[in-house]
Write a protein that binds this DNA or RNA. Structure first.
Lengths: 249, 249
DNA sequence: CGGTATTTTGATTTAGCTCAACAGACGTGG
DNA sequence: CCACGTCTGTTGAGCTAAATCAAAATACCG
């Protein structure tokens, strides 16, 4: 049995200076839906954003609060969580730099319908949602691009619904690991290391199961030499084998 | 025990002539994201759409087919279904006039990721997705409006994910009935009658459960005088009591 | 009036939840 | 740098909601 080592997560990848004005423009350019803009338009857009740093564990906004800002992840990672009245919580999404969250719809009652938490030290840009909307009117190609992204997220959400109703917990977790691998995986001596603090509870909340069953499944995967994992970290050693555990493809 | 009567569904509400050119403009105007357009713009938009009638049970497109069209329901109702390789299926959404479906994202591999079926006799407008996108560029307010709608659907999908992971099957079904009541409910002598052919299997596929449990739950609700139902139809007799079965609200 | 699709009800089985107790990692303060 | 407390993960043993299997009853359609 492989021994648990101390966390191999690369904490240096999150540096404070990633929030300075110098790098803001470069980051903005990396945001998928702004990439189509000309440099001078980008500069104008840049001025409208405020930047705030958050440390791991910080709550950025809470479910139910009145919503006024649209935000974009500059660095770090953000968790979107929805809580039930009885305390259970589910992890809807984990965002990486370039992704947006917060208020967008002008429908509904303008309340955040999830809680956003900094998963690791992070830097976040914010813009008033009203202002963002006028920006979309000004640059329709940005609007179409955002629409594409949201449509894509809707599709993912629906795929998750399918998983929840048709797949076993094990398969759901395998699928989640594969997705996270593609999104956060980085080559390391342990295999593809997920560059994000990831607890058993996080996994459970993503798969819609209990921490205990999540732990059991991870233990099994570890015994089968498919993954390697410790406190708050996971690495995929054998993506092939992992992928083989799923029905289609 | 109330006797089962023959279907009280109002089939006359779906008339063939709703597809004629005469009513197209009026219908287009009722589409939420076109409502902001001026009359002459609306007429220009109208010309770009083709209209096709479908009879109940027709498949409009299949999951996996290459996707090129964006469609808008003019009359009738459409089911969006996602199938698993092992034959199980889940009902993602039921659409009513004014809602859109089909291809929208320019990301991904341009395949439909669900199957669309006419739930009742329906009439559907279609436009090339490329053409629709250029239309969005031309009328940014439409783009922003569509974005709002999709964001809203994303939110609903996430709420469904929460339900699937935290609520019992009974509560999920109660919630679905309430939602359908708001969307398709019409006053009738049975109470709020859901103007849509709705089988136990449909309900089961929406709640992510088996037809048998769906049936059991519906039987119980019927015994408690909360709903009334027969083959392919459901009416809500006591919305209050139904709503009381849910935790929050 | 017979045939088919839908719904109902019962009996059995099981995946995964819950409760419970322990063990390993982290970090914090002396 | 070490000892202690806390948080995270592991493992075991029942328990339960809901799936599955099976079969009868009812509605609709020609």
């Amino acid at each position: 049995m492989p021994q648990k080592r101390s966390t191999p997560l690369n904490k240096r990848s999150i540096e404070k200076d990633q929030c300075t004005i110098d790098v803001r423009l470069a980051k903005l350019r990396m945001v998928p839906f702004f990439s189509c803009l000309e440099m001078n338009d980008l500069e104008r857009v840049n001025e409208k954003f405020d930047v705030t740093p958050f440390t791991a564990g910080d709550t950025i906004y809470r479910q139910g609060e009145s919503a006024a800002l649209l935000r974009v992840v500059v660095s770090g990672s953000i968790k979107l969580i929805r809580r039930t009245s009885d305390g259970k919580e589910i992890l809807l999404d984990m965002l990486k730099p370039g992704e947006h969250f917060g208020s967008l719809s002008q429908l509904g009652d303008n309340r955040y319908n999830e809680t956003a938490t900094a998963q690791s030290d992070s830097c976040v840009m914010a813009i008033g949602s009203r202002e963002f909307r006028s920006l979309l009117m000004q640059f329709p190609e940005v609007a179409v691009s955002v629409l594409s992204i949201v449509t894509d997220k809707l599709n993912h959400a629906r795929e998750k619904i399918r998983h929840l109703t048709t797949l076993s917990v094990e398969k759901r977790i395998v699928h989640i690991l594969l997705t996270l691998c593609d999104k956060f995986g980085e080559e390391s001596r342990h295999g593809m290391l997920l560059q994000v603090p990831l607890s058993r509870k996080d996994l459970a909340d993503m798969a819609g199961t209990s921490t205990e069953t999540a732990s059991r499944i991870m233990s099994k995967l570890q015994q089968d030499e498919i993954i390697e994992s410790g406190r708050q970290w996971v690495a995929i050693k054998d993506r092939e084998k992992l992928s083989d555990l799923l029905p289609d493809h």
